[in-house]
Design a protein around this nucleic acid. Structure first.
Lengths: 122, 122
DNA sequence: TTTGTTCATCGCAAATATACGATTAATCCA
DNA sequence: TGGATTAATCGTATATTTGCGATGAACAAA
């Protein structure tokens, strides 16, 4: 697509949140993560038995979760055992927590559909 | 695309997390939310001055944030004042918090690249 | 070596997302 | 009434995502 305007700059945090969020932006990946997180330990590609999707599709979603750092795979031939990547999980948790807890209280008291007096906002 | 297999069922929570995450999955939307959250009160489409993107593109991103319930707009002709939607924000916060804090501790002690004993996983 | 199992990757098709300029709608002000 | 301002929407082009079947790679067991 056209990108004639100057390139928008993003902070590392903005990029990081967006990347984690993208990994979480499909319900089947949420389902996979919940399955893995609910296991005592790891889990394997029997995901294909629990989720009615083609094996290649599951594998693709696992790959994106891997790349996001939310899970890890342990090769255990001919199987692969997946589990939550603790580091990535905690990192995602804290980055979302920080995001949703802004420094300033964002109390917007603008009554919806009512004109707010000028000067309250920049 | 082909969807020959049976339709995958998702829980309301899985869908909700994925929808919020999709709204957060682009860095410019993170930037917009941070700008709005840092304001004492609301904010307007001077976003176009702060973010070097076409006005129509900003408007498109605002729309997706609106639809996700993360912001709200107050029509103040000919301007529109946007601000964080407290309800949606808190809902997203709590749903992510719950997600990242699973009931069961997911302590995966599988040493990476080492075969784990059979039977520890279902 | 051959066969079977498991999973990743490839190749393709369809759906969605992203970005832009142009246009339209709504509203003010002269 | 006729501009001016602001922002949404439309139309279009391109990029990315999603999903599938087919194929390939790695390994264990016969």
């Amino acid at each position: 697509m056209k990108r004639t305007l100057s390139v928008v700059e993003y902070s590392g945090e903005e990029e990081a949140i967006a990347l984690f969020a993208k990994a979480l932006s499909h319900p089947v990946r949420i389902k996979i993560l919940k399955l893995l997180a609910s296991q005592q330990c790891c889990f394997t590609g029997e995901l294909t038995e629990l989720i009615p999707m083609a094996q290649s599709t599951i594998s693709q979603h696992l790959k994106s979760l891997l790349e996001a750092g939310l899970i890890q795979g342990e090769i255990n031939p001919p199987k692969v055992r997946y589990c939550i990547n603790q580091d990535g999980w905690l990192k995602a948790h804290s980055i979302f927590e920080d995001f949703f807890t802004p420094d300033r209280v964002f109390g917007c008291d603008c009554p919806v559909a009512v004109r707010a007096p000028e000067g309250r906002c920049r």
